[in-house]
Amino acid sequence: MMNRRDFLKLACFSVVGTPARSVFDRLTGKDIAGPTKEGQPKWAMVVDLKMCASKPGCRDCVDACHSIHNVPAFNNPKDEVKWVWTDSYKNIFPEQSHRFVSVEVQTRPVLILCNHCENPPCVKVCPTRATFRREDGIVMMDYHRCIGCRYCMAACPYGARSFNWKDPRPFIKKIKEDFPTRTKGVVEKCSFCEERLAKGLKPACVEACTTKALTFGDLNEPNSQVRNLLASKPNIRRKAYLGTEPKVFYLE
């Protein structure tokens, strides 16, 4: 039997507790990573580092991405805008690097891009919801709403976000008319080619890769290629300890 005291406690919790929980979730950004809807895909990418390194100096994926997305080329590190690029293994996985790792591995190029985190810190901090997470897990940017405060850049643990320090248009080699250019003063980044996914195509970088190093697919599909790779081969993610749940995986 429930006595009066317990009844009151329960009543208080159900009246105050439930809203308090939801308020807490909203304040800490827990509500950003909502449950997946039935039948929704959850996009992810697997990068095979060995295969990628098999073609030294290759920039096929980077060029493909940057040319179709009107990414400007500033040629100076201060203003640079990057959607996908490479850096050395020891910079990208510092916690996996030590001096006994072979030079070949340490200097291996690692392809990096937005991780489309399940718990994206950039989405949490954005004061205008200009950056948001779709139900299929893609973290998107609204270039028309972004006020350019760059809080998302401070919050991103992967350096995946670029800011338009100048008007980018004069620095685009050849403007593609079917994709928007950006204006000065807004942040941009990789969008997992959502405009191509909508047409049933694979991301441009995956399509451009000739070494078969990049695999793209649906994590919610148990028989997808990405799921098979992740189940069969050891893989790592960048700074997984931060709890961001990155969705770009690396096979060593």
Partner: peptide, 14 residues
């Protein structure tokens, strides 16, 4: 410090 100062009221709108 804003890149798009004309949009500052987006903080209140959204």
């Amino acid at each position: 410090d804003l890149g798009q100062p004309a949009r500052v009221f987006n903080i209140i709108l959204y």
